[in-house]
C-alpha cells in the first residue's frame, strides 16, 4: 500500500517535471526571438521583412552581407579586433599568472601590500578616470594606436586575473612539486614555466574566456583612443555605419550580424567552457 503511494508520488512528480520542461522551452523560445529575428532579417528584402517579419526568408539573399562586408571594411576591422583581443589576452595571462603565483608564494608584508593594491582595483571603475586616461595616453604618444586600447584593457583586467591566479595557486598547486624541482636545481623561471604553468590550465582557461569577452566587447576604450578608421574595431564600424545608412534598414542587420558573428561562433563551439568559465570567474572574483 505504502509502496504504491510512493510510486504515485513519483509519477506525479514526473508529470510535473514534464510540464515544467514544456513551460521552460516555451519561455526559452520567446527569449530567443530577438536573436532569431536578427538572423532571418539579414537575408530578407525590406518589403519581405516588413510583410512577414518572423517567417523564414522565402529566398536566402546574401547580397546584404556582401554590401555590409564592403561597407564595414570587415576584414580590416576584424583584423584589428582580433589583434587587440589576442594581444591583450596573451599579456594578461602572462603578467597576472606571474604576479598571482608570486603573491601566493610570498607571505611577507610586502607581498600582502602589493596584493591589496591590486585588489583595490576591483573597487575602482576605470570609467571614472576617462579624462585623465585620455591625457596620459596622449602625452605618451599612444593616441590612435591599438596599443593604447590593449594596455588600458590589460590594466582594467589585471586585478581580477591576479586574484584568480593567486587563489588557484594557493588551493591547487602543490608546493612539494616545486620543492622537488628546486632540489633538482631548476632555475626559478624554468620552474614556473615548466612545472607551475601547465598545472594552471583550468584557471588559464577561465581567465582567457572572461578577458576575451571583456576585451572583444569593450567599446569605450576604442571610442576614446582610436580616431582613425584605419585602426578602428568592429564595434566602431557598426556604429559608424548605422549612422550613415539609417534609411536602408535591412542593410544594417547584416552589419549587426557580422558584428556578433565571431563571438557567436566562439560561443556555439565553446559554450560549455564559456558558461563554466564565467561561473568560476564570478564566484571567485
Amino acid at each position: 500500500m505504502r509502496e504504491q503511494s510512493s510510486i504515485e508520488v513519483s509519477k506525479k512528480q514526473k508529470i510535473k517535471l514534464v510540464f515544467t520542461e514544456i513551460f521552460m522551452i516555451v519561455v526559452a523560445i520567446i527569449w530567443f526571438i530577438p536573436i532569431y529575428y536578427l538572423i532571418v532579417t539579414t537575408f530578407k528584402s525590406p518589403q519581405e521583412a516588413t510583410l512577414s517579419p518572423l517567417a523564414l526568408p522565402s529566398v536566402w539573399r546574401i547580397e546584404n552581407y556582401i554590401d555590409a562586408w564592403i561597407n564595414m571594411e570587415y576584414p580590416r576591422a576584424l583584423g584589428n579586433t582580433l589583434k587587440i583581443t589576442i594581444l591583450a589576452v596573451a599579456i594578461i595571462v602572462l603578467v597576472t599568472s606571474l604576479a598571482g603565483y608570486a603573491l601566493a608564494r610570498t607571505k611577507n608584508k610586502w607581498g600582502n601590500r602589493v596584493f591589496l593594491l591590486f585588489l583595490a582595483g576591483l573597487m575602482v571603475p576605470f570609467q571614472m578616470n576617462i579624462v585623465s586616461l585620455f591625457k596620459i595616453v596622449k602625452s605618451i604618444g599612444l593616441m590612435n594606436s591599438i596599443w593604447a586600447v590593449i594596455l588600458v584593457d590589460v590594466a582594467i583586467n589585471v586585478p581580477q586575473g591576479i586574484f584568480l591566479f593567486k587563489e588557484f595557486v594557493e588551493s591547487s598547486v602543490p608546493k612539494e612539486l616545486e620543492e622537488a624541482a628546486e632540489i633538482d636545481g631548476c632555475s626559478i623561471f624554468r620552474k614556473f614555466f615548466v612545472i607551475v604553468l601547465p598545472l594552471m590550465k583550468p584557471v588559464i582557461a577561465t581567465v582567457v574566456i572572461i578577458v576575451t569577452l571583456n576585451v572583444w566587447n569593450e567599446f569605450m576604450t576604442p571610442l576614446l583612443f582610436i580616431q582613425s578608421r584605419q585602426n578602428d574595431v568592429i564595434l566602431q564600424e557598426v556604429s559608424r555605419n548605422i549612422g550613415q545608412f539609417s534609411t536602408d534598414w535591412t542593410a544594417l542587420f547584416p552589419m549587426l550580424m557580422l558584428g556578433v558573428a565571431p563571438l557567436m561562433l566562439f560561443y556555439i563551439f565553446m559554450q560549455k567552457y564559456i558558461i563554466s568559465g564565467v561561473a568560476a570567474g564570478a564566484v571567485k572574483g
Partner: peptide, 28 residues
Amino acid sequence: GSLGHYFILFVLPALVIYLLFSILPFFY
C-alpha cells in the same frame, strides 16, 4: 618567501601596467 628576490621580477610587469594605466589616472 620561497621566491626570494625574484618576487619583484614576477610582480613587476603587472605592476608597471597597473600603476601607469590604473593608479596614475586615478590620482590625476
